[in-house]
Amino acid sequence: MTGTLRLGSTVPDFAASTNKGDFQFHDYINGSWAILFSHPDDFTPVCTTELGEAARQQGEFDKRGVKLIGLSANDIDSHDRWIKDITDVSKANVTFPIIGDKDRKIATTFDMLDQLDETNKDVKGLPLTVRSVFVINPNKQIVTIITYPASVGRNFDEILRVIDSLQLSASLQGKVTTPVNWRKGDDVIIAPPVKDEEAKQLFGNFRAEKPYLRFTPDPSKK
C-alpha cells in the first residue's frame, strides 16, 4: 500500500502494540477524530520537544474530540524510558499511546520512511520515519496529510488550526471554507457551490469581495 494513501482514502486498519497496550486501529478510532503522527527516533532532541508539546496541548485536542497516536521505529520499552525525559523537559504527562513499530510495517504502509536523508537512519543503516501527520475524520477517512523532514519540528498550533477548519466545514456539510491564515473566530468563506440566496438563508448578511469570494462571520460564534 506504500504511496497509495491520498486525501479521502480510508485509513488502513492495523493491529499495534503501544506503550498504553495493544489495539486495533479502527476500533481505537471508534467514531472519533484522530491524528496519527510519527517521529524519527526516541531520545532525540527535536522529537523530545515535539512530544512534549503534544502532551502540553492534550487538553486542546480533547476539547475537539481528537485522539492522538504517536509512532516511531522504536520498541515499547524505549518509549517507556523516553517518556520520563519528555516529562522532565516539558513538565507535561504523555497520556496518548505511542506505537512501537520496530519492524517498520506500519510506517511502510503509511509511506513514512525517510529514503533520502542519510542522517535519518538507525545504527544498522535502516531508514527512520519522517515527521508525518495524518488527520483522520470519524468516518475513518484521511482528510489531511502533512510531512516534515527530520530536521524541522512541527507546529502543533497549526495542526489544531487545521482541525478547527476541518471540523467547522464538516459541521456545515462543506458549505464554508477558511481563508489564508484563518483562526477560529475569523470570518470564513462561503463555498462557491452555495448560491447567494442559499447563503442568505444560511448565514444572513455576507460581504462579497468578488462574485466568487464571499465572506461571512464564523458560524460557530453564533
Rank of each mutant, 00 (worst) to 15 (best):
L113P: 00
F134M: 10
A15I: 08
L128F: 09
I86Y: 11
L160C: 13
A199V: 08
G8N: 15
L126E: 13
N120D: 07
P179C: 09
N19W: 02
C47I: 05
Q167L: 08
I142H: 10
R64A: 07
G70L: 12
I189F: 09
P138T: 00
T216Q: 02
E197D: 15
P211K: 03
S17R: 13
N205L: 11
D42R: 11
K200M: 08
T109C: 10
T18Y: 03
G3F: 08
V194E: 02
I69R: 05
E50S: 07
D157T: 02
V130K: 09
R64F: 06
A73I: 08
P45R: 00
R104A: 11
V133I: 13
G65S: 05
D42E: 10
D101C: 09
S220D: 10
L126R: 14
G65R: 00
V94G: 02
N74P: 03
S165C: 12
N181C: 00
R154N: 04
S32V: 01
L160Q: 09
S32P: 01
P138V: 01
L36F: 12
E158V: 03
N139D: 15
V123Y: 13
I189A: 01
L51M: 15
A170P: 07
G8E: 14
A208D: 08
N74Y: 06
C47V: 05
I98V: 13
L113G: 01
G185W: 01
L126K: 15
M1A: 11
T109Y: 04
F110L: 06
R6M: 11
A92N: 08
D117Y: 01
L71P: 00
Q141L: 14
Y148E: 04
V66R: 10
S90W: 00
Q201N: 15
T48K: 11
T87Y: 12
E118T: 14
D42T: 10
G3T: 04
K175N: 06
F25N: 05
R56H: 11
A34K: 04
D196W: 00
G59D: 14
K140D: 09
F43L: 15
Y212M: 12
N205T: 05
R183D: 04
E50P: 06
N93L: 06
A150L: 02
E198C: 00
Q24S: 15
D218N: 01
W33L: 12
R207K: 15
R183C: 00
S151R: 02
V152Q: 02
K102R: 14
M1L: 11
I163R: 04
D186R: 02
N93T: 12
D101T: 14
P193K: 13
K102S: 15
P193A: 11
L5Q: 10
Q24K: 11
L51Q: 05
D186E: 07
